Amino acid sequence: MEDNEIISLWRTYGQRLEESLQLNRRNAEEITRLKVKSFLSSMKPIKLFTIAVGIIWVGLIDILIIKLFPIANWFFIISAGIQVLLTKLAIVIYLYQLILIHEADISEPVLETQHKLASLRSTTIWVTRILFLQLPVWTTFYWNRSMLLNGNWVLYLIQAAVTLSFIFAAIWLFRNIRYENKDKKWFRLIFNGSEWDPVIKSIELLNELKALRVENK
């Protein structure tokens, strides 16, 4: 076999090998995008359910506040008002997350999808921080004038200890629930399930895809 033929065969082999590698890369990228889409889609049911339950809950509490406003004590009105206000804010964030999931088109550039996933991750952290702020009002809504005037010191001490503990817990969690603490046990205990894992797995997959593109340049 002449040298020209060998060179020609080698070039043909090299070209076919490069085409095969490009096809494998495209297939790997498509599989990664489909996995990301599957992860994001798995988040929709729980968010829709949470929004539906939240809307029903705030509707009932609003009706209760309106009907009892003339006769209810102010501890209940204020506590219920704070709780329902924070729940409404959480519902708005959940609706925003559904929009992000819907707009996260797997065919768009990786950077844009990463940006949407980063927003989804940060809002998941924020909605959790906001919901934990409700803790103290669950220890104050049942207070009333008779309880304060006719209670004994044991009751006062127990109630003060419980309420202060819940206030401390709410403030501590609000300040410390940050992505920087993601490797801590208490953080993983809170963020472990269908509202967190799919986001993190999707971000990791897109990071791997982006790194692969850089290596192949």
Rank of each mutant, 00 (worst) to 15 (best):
E2R: 08
L9G: 04
T12G: 10
Q15W: 09
S20D: 12
N24S: 14
N24K: 13
R26T: 01
E29G: 00
R33V: 00
R33G: 01
K35R: 15
K35L: 13
K37V: 02
F39D: 15
L40A: 06
M43H: 02
I46E: 10
K47A: 08
L48K: 15
T50M: 12
I51V: 12
I51E: 01
G54T: 03
I55G: 07
V58R: 07
G59K: 09
G59S: 09
L60E: 06
L60S: 09
I61L: 14
I63K: 13
L64W: 11
K67T: 13
K67N: 06
L68D: 07
F69M: 14
W74I: 14
I77T: 12
I78P: 05
I78Y: 12
A80M: 14
I82F: 14
Q83N: 12
V84T: 15
L86D: 01
T87R: 12
L89I: 13
L89G: 09
A90P: 01
Y94P: 00
Y96G: 01
Q97D: 02
Q97E: 10
I99R: 12
L100R: 06
I106H: 04
S107W: 04
P109A: 03
E112Q: 15
E112M: 15
H115N: 11
L117A: 02
L117P: 06
L117C: 03
S119I: 03
S119E: 12
L120E: 01
R121M: 11
S122M: 11
T128H: 11
P136G: 02
V137E: 05
V137W: 13
V137H: 09
W138R: 07
T140P: 03
Y142A: 14
S146K: 13
L148N: 04
W153T: 14
L155S: 10
L155C: 00
L157Y: 07
I158A: 10
I158H: 06
A160Y: 08
A160R: 09
A161Q: 04
V162P: 03
V162I: 15
T163M: 10
T163K: 09
F168A: 14
F168I: 14
W172E: 04
W172G: 03
W172H: 10
F174T: 01
N176S: 07
I177E: 02
Y179N: 10
N181M: 09
D183Q: 11
K184G: 05
K185T: 11
W186Y: 12
L189Q: 08
G193M: 03
G193Y: 01
G193W: 01
E195V: 10
E195F: 10
V199R: 03
I200F: 03
K201P: 00
K201H: 08
S202M: 04
I203K: 10
L206M: 02
L206A: 00
N207H: 06
L209E: 00
K210C: 02
A211E: 00
K217Q: 00
